[in-house]
């Protein structure tokens, strides 16, 4: 995951401290795993080392120290480049599902029960995504749509697999 670039993106609208960055990330991606604090601070230090962000304030206002970071011109350029570049299409998080089916078949087991269970799990997830109220948030529907349509593509693969495995069973009978 491109955490570093996302952090740059979160600083795009102005300087912020680590907590704001984390909160911003979780608001952008409400259906994903929240960003861990540790990861935010490690990422900010690395970006500072590479000259992509700089510290603009170390105020504490009586509480714990709050380092405020801002994008440097190089950081802004890096972000613009990252946003413009298409990603390499590759197998994503679902490759475990494919591996499980291949392993089931290779070990001589019947994959159809697993495929049916996976199918219902995928459908349930789409149902959850659709149940989220559409609100004034300008981008979270984009992420939900992306996820639902990818789950749909997985489901088509699951259907094909289920049909072909059933056919194979029928012909070998």
């Amino acid at each position: 995951m491109a955490t570093a670039e996302l952090v740059l993106g979160l600083l795009h609208n102005g300087p912020a401290h680590g907590y704001d960055v984390k909160r911003g990330h979780d608001a952008w991606f409400p259906d994903s795993r929240p960003l861990a604090f540790g990861q935010v601070y490690t990422t900010l230090s690395r970006l500072e080392r590479d000259g992509l962000v700089e510290v603009v304030d170390r105020g504490s206002e009586g509480g714990p120290e709050r380092t405020v970071y801002a994008l440097t011109p190089q950081g802004r350029e890096h972000l613009a480049h990252w946003l413009a570049e298409p990603i390499q299409p590759a197998l994503g998080a679902v490759d475990e599902m494919v591996r499980k089916v291949v392993a089931t078949i290779r070990t001589g087991e019947d994959a159809s029960a697993f495929l049916a269970r996976q199918r219902s799990s995928h459908l349930r997830r789409i149902r959850e995504l659709k149940a989220v109220e559409s609100d004034s948030d300008s981008s979270s529907w984009l992420v939900r749509d992306y996820m639902a349509l990818h789950l749909d593509a997985d489901l088509r693969w699951l259907d094909n697999a289920l049909d072909r495995i059933t056919e194979q069973k029928e012909t070998s009978r």
Binding site: R119, H122, L123, R124
Partner: peptide, 25 residues
């Protein structure tokens, strides 16, 4: 359409005129 099926409480999947599986969603 899977995106339509996902609205249901239950899915009944047919194949060759018989129920292949039935799952609660």
């Amino acid at each position: 359409d899977n995106l339509v099926a996902a609205y249901a409480d239950r899915e009944v999947r047919l194949r060759d005129g018989v129920i292949q599986h039935e799952v609660s969603l």
